[in-house]
């Protein structure tokens, strides 16, 4: 007799579950290795040509931008004109980073709006880091708070042991940015992207890419409602709802 209450994801063999690291971000070597493997992934081979290039960008070796800003780190960018809303990215992220088929745990989330547009919300690694500023934990000798920038990948990282579970970073992300940062069951923050590139590799519509991150995340990291409004204006400028049209 099977037990309906048994947690299902335990069925996933142990080695398939992402190892629980103290630093929940891979180091730079993992990062680049992961990308190289991705570019050659057989399963999606016919599709990846364009996006493989995007993934292969070594964001750390990038030259200063035209305006002379120094480019540090990357971010995942989503294009609502191309996205078909398949949620392959969500599942890929959850599977890779949590070892579960459970989009709820994905760091990227796809929201659907009408007239149909799909908005992908993922940590934009804002250069000015309102989340880090909000963290009340005292910096350690490397100058890191409980939530901090990974020294190599520049991706947002949490030190769950020093985290005080106050939710200030989540609050900051929710009020000032796209709100992708959220509290897990154990009340430590979750939802930050570690730039593994898995979602970019798996997207069949080439709607995702690694972009250099911006110094100020205010534009790139707006919430889904605002992004949707802009996307709808761009894609369906001047639309009328079907209902209005058939009055």
């Amino acid at each position: 007799m099977f037990d309906p209450n048994k947690k299902l994801h335990n069925d996933v063999p142990a080695e398939e579950t992402a190892p629980e690291k103290k630093l929940r971000t891979p180091n730079r070597r993992d990062f680049l290795k992961g990308m190289a493997v991705g570019a050659g992934a057989v399963a999606l081979a016919p599709l990846v040509t364009e996006q493989a290039k995007a993934v292969d960008i070594d964001v750390f070796a990038m030259k200063p931008s035209v305006r002379g800003e120094k480019v540090v780190g990357g971010r995942i960018s989503h294009d609502p004109r191309k996205c078909a809303g398949c949620r392959i990215c969500e599942v890929a992220c959850a599977l890779k980073n949590h070892g579960e088929v459970n989009p709820f745990k994905s760091r990227i989330r796809i929201y659907t709006y009408q007239p149909t547009v799909f908005i992908g919300i993922v940590c934009q690694q804002c250069g000015d880091r309102p989340c880090i500023s909000a963290c009340p934990v005292d910096p350690d000798k490397e100058g890191r708070k409980a939530i901090f920038e990974h020294p190599e990948t520049k991706a947002l990282t949490v030190d769950t042991e020093r985290c005080e579970k106050c939710g200030e970073c989540v609050e900051a992300c929710n009020t000032e940015r796209n709100g992708n940062l959220r509290l897990k069951e154990d009340e430590t923050p979750d939802g930050f992207c570690l730039l593994c590139g898995e979602c970019v590799k798996k997207c069949p519509q080439n709607a995702l890419a690694v972009f250099p991150r911006t110094t100020d995340g205010k534009y790139a990291s707006r919430n889904a409602d605002v992004m949707a409004k802009e996307a709808i204006e761009t894609i369906y400028g001047g639309y009328k709802t079907i209902t209005d049209n058939l009055k």
Partner: peptide, 30 residues
């Protein structure tokens, strides 16, 4: 204006569209 598909689907056989001319101008559909 773009593709639209179902869960986990790379085919995305639906197409999002909008009429831009004539008396039904502004109507969106798939």
């Amino acid at each position: 204006v773009g593709d639209s598909g179902c869960y986990m689907c790379p085919i995305a056989c639906l197409n999002r569209g909008m009429i831009r001319t004539g008396r039904f101008s502004g109507m969106t559909h798939d």
